[in-house]
Amino acid sequence: MKKYLVLLLIPLFFGCDKENFSNNNPYLPSYSFSLNINLALPQYSNLQFPSNAVYINNGSAGIRGVIVFNTGSGYVAFDAACPNQALSSCSTMTLSGINAICPCDDAVYSLFTGQAPEKEYRLKQYRVEQLNASSLKVYN
């Protein structure tokens, strides 16, 4: 009887995931990267306060760079490429407060949810790990 109970519990352990998001998007390829962010540096100091975002484009993170956002209860990171557009000269998002705007179609995406009204795909989300009080790791 114990063997059957163990066999029933095993899928539960492997079926759980820390982040519950999907990055399946036909417009955006998946690139592996890892980015460490020191929140003590001036260019990232805004991330110490809730509802602030920073755009990072160091040439090796994400497709069009990465947008990191402090939700107040943690950090989220999204790719700066417009999720509902093929990659083009206008497909890099711009920040506007708590939103990211796609210049191709003027879609406004919430940085809290990654979604825009009436759009099929949400922003491509990346994993964020807080290493200590002043350091984040963003990776795919």
Rank of each mutant, 00 (worst) to 15 (best):
E129S: 04
C82N: 04
N58D: 15
F69T: 00
I10E: 10
Y126L: 03
L35T: 06
L9W: 04
C104W: 07
S88V: 03
Y55G: 01
G114A: 01
N57A: 14
L28I: 15
Y27Q: 07
N20T: 14
S32D: 11
S22V: 13
A61R: 10
E120I: 15
N57K: 15
G72K: 11
A40W: 01
Y139V: 07
S60I: 14
K119G: 01
Q85L: 06
F69L: 02
N57E: 08
L123N: 00
I56P: 09
F78C: 11
Y121E: 02
F49C: 01
Q43L: 06
C16F: 13
V54M: 01
A77I: 12
L28H: 08
Q48E: 02
Q43T: 15
D79S: 11
S32G: 10
S89Q: 13
D106S: 15
D79V: 01
L111E: 00
D106N: 15
N70A: 03
I56C: 10
N52Q: 10
V138I: 13
Y139N: 10
A40Y: 01
F33M: 01
K3R: 12
S96H: 12
N140T: 03
N23M: 12
Y27H: 15
C82K: 09
N25M: 10
N52T: 10
S51C: 05
P117D: 08
F33L: 00
A77Y: 07
P11R: 04
A100T: 08
E120A: 13
P42R: 08
S32K: 05
N25R: 12
N23I: 15
